[in-house]
Design a binder for these strands. Structure first.
Lengths: 309, 309
DNA sequence: TAAACGTATGAATAGTATTCATCAATATTA
DNA sequence: TAATATTGATGAATACTATTCATACGTTTA
């Protein structure tokens, strides 16, 4: 007779994702379900409470007041749960150990910093470190004990190594606002001939644009390298060349019209990001916590990224 | 690969009940599931977190530190959820109306007071009232519009009326500590002949002991009535007679040895409590909230009561 | 030493969340 | 403006998994 409360955490997770993505389909991807599943969930909630939770606003959906209230609840509750699970993990066993992070992706510094801050607070007894410098085979670092996590796009199956999917992101071409190519909405491989490509100082086979677009088309533009993302953008803005960077890495600069961004190829050039660890480190509670908070903060902070796996 | 969190609210509800009851079987009754179901739930949690949640302590179970942490979480989270659902109910429509409570059961004042306090805070716009005096047919009060809820043991199906089950409780015989019957652990109908029965001033057919035990056995003891529970207990303690009261109503007095309590019949004399409303009032959000908080606080406060339905 | 009570557990079942297949509506592109 | 691609909603089919059932095992009580 009296179904006291049909609410489950799954609903809160859904609503939270719905809030962050602003669309049922995207939220569905985020929680690894189909759009239909979420639609049914939302309908069930609405039927139960007798109030609309979302309002169809043209193409996408908007949360109602009741929806917002539930989202607020979700935020609080999910955070409390994560905190509890952390403290249980600490009781369980090793709340200590080391987490030395090796970065294959230069731009990742952007979102890694706040994440590391949070992590340091949650796990004061874990030695947190950044392994600096460029490494030709970063995953080898794991096996050699030089790092505990590698963040990069490599995900070849390798014995004793686990690749934890983080997210997919789009790589956009970055141009100066008055660049001749500005008229084209989508750039093709051919557009890059006779241009200077500005990149981080890494080998060619580590640059997706070259590896997956230019090389197959037989195009080998000139290259100029620099360490820092801002430096790359400076050079682009000064019309010294063109660059290819993650969409979330340049967003601020595009918004201020320092540079403009263009899609590469009809479907865009996409790249995947993984956090790789040894199998044994993968089970450490603090590592698992690092991964989930990494995903959480990335999805909350970074625009235009898509879940993986 | 990474099942971020398998925790669901159902687990928290279970653990909360487990904490309050101290036993898997009783907790199972509380959440309207089987003992087996809860046992499986707990096992699943333990497997997931890799830590014991409960420890078998002889006959019953005890929560571990991790278990206690989860119970603390449950308390917080479930309360936040109830608060949210209240505020959604308020948005939805009528957060106002009236809740006039008629009590068929005198002893119920004990637990009703704190409940009404809480309710008044949650629903400031609902007119809360107690319908005083005794009524021969309290459910008729609903139909006549004299009350919105009747709390009593009546639950005959009647058109337009819903009986919301609250809980079952045991009625114990109350004796003075030096009463001749003190030696018997269990009293039979025959034991009541030649005794004076002290009761509230209500008709015989509203007294479970008379209706279900004494009358069937052809026993008609003398009766003396008084309004207040304390007065009944005073009379019992002064050896003026014997009484039959809910176990939770006399607990304090038994603990202080003012009186002693004895089971009536081999399985005890049990009575059920319902909150009855008109069908239309049953759907009001504040009524639903009243019912769930009533059950919650009763189960949390009153000892020895058992879920119903 | 049963009898009664409480918990644990594998297998069967039942319940229901999710997917599939589709439609309608809106936005995008040619 | 038609054509195409997205997005959300919905009934029916499916797949999953939580719950129950049946039972065993341990503890307490008479």
């Amino acid at each position: 007779m009296s179904a006291i409360s049909m609410l489950e955490l799954r609903h809160l997770r859904t609503l939270s994702a719905l809030h962050e993505t602003g669309s049922v389909s995207r939220a569905a991807k985020r929680v690894h379900l189909t759009q239909s599943a979420l639609s049914h969930q939302i309908k069930a909630l609405q039927d139960h409470y007798g109030v609309p939770i979302v309002r169809r606003q043209g193409q996408s959906v908007e949360l109602t007041d009741a929806g917002k209230r539930l989202v607020a609840l979700a935020g609080k509750v999910l955070e409390e749960i994560q905190a509890t699970e952390r403290s249980i993990a600490k009781m369980s066993q090793q709340a200590s150990g080391s987490l030395r992070i090796a970065l294959e992706c230069h731009t990742c510094f952007d979102w890694l910093m706040p994440l590391m801050d949070a992590f340091r607070q949650h796990w004061p007894d874990v030695e947190l470190d950044l392994v600096s410098g460029f490494h030709s085979d970063p995953v080898k670092l794991l096996e050699e004990g030089g790092a505990d996590v590698v963040i990069g796009s490599e995900h070849k199956r390798r014995r004793g190594v686990v690749h934890h999917p983080l997210f997919s992101f789009e790589i956009l071409a970055v141009l100066s606002p008055d660049h001749p190519l500005r008229a084209k909405r989508i750039l093709q491989a051919a557009d890059f001939s006779d241009l200077t490509l500005i990149t981080y100082p890494v080998p060619e086979d580590r640059i997706d644009l070259i590896l997956n677009v230019l090389k197959p088309a037989g195009i080998h533009p000139q290259r100029r390298t620099t360490e820092l993302t801002v430096a790359i953008l400076q050079l682009v803005a000064s019309r010294r060349g063109i660059a290819a960077l993650p969409s979330w890495g340049i967003q601020n600069y595009v918004e201020h019209d320092y540079v403009i961004a263009r899609r590469i190829g009809p479907h865009g050039l996409w790249s995947d990001l993984y956090a790789s660890t040894l199998t044994e480190t993968a089970s450490r509670p603090y590592l698992r916590d690092f991964l989930t908070t990494a995903r959480n903060t990335c999805f909350a902070t970074l625009d235009g990224i898509v879940p993986l796996d």
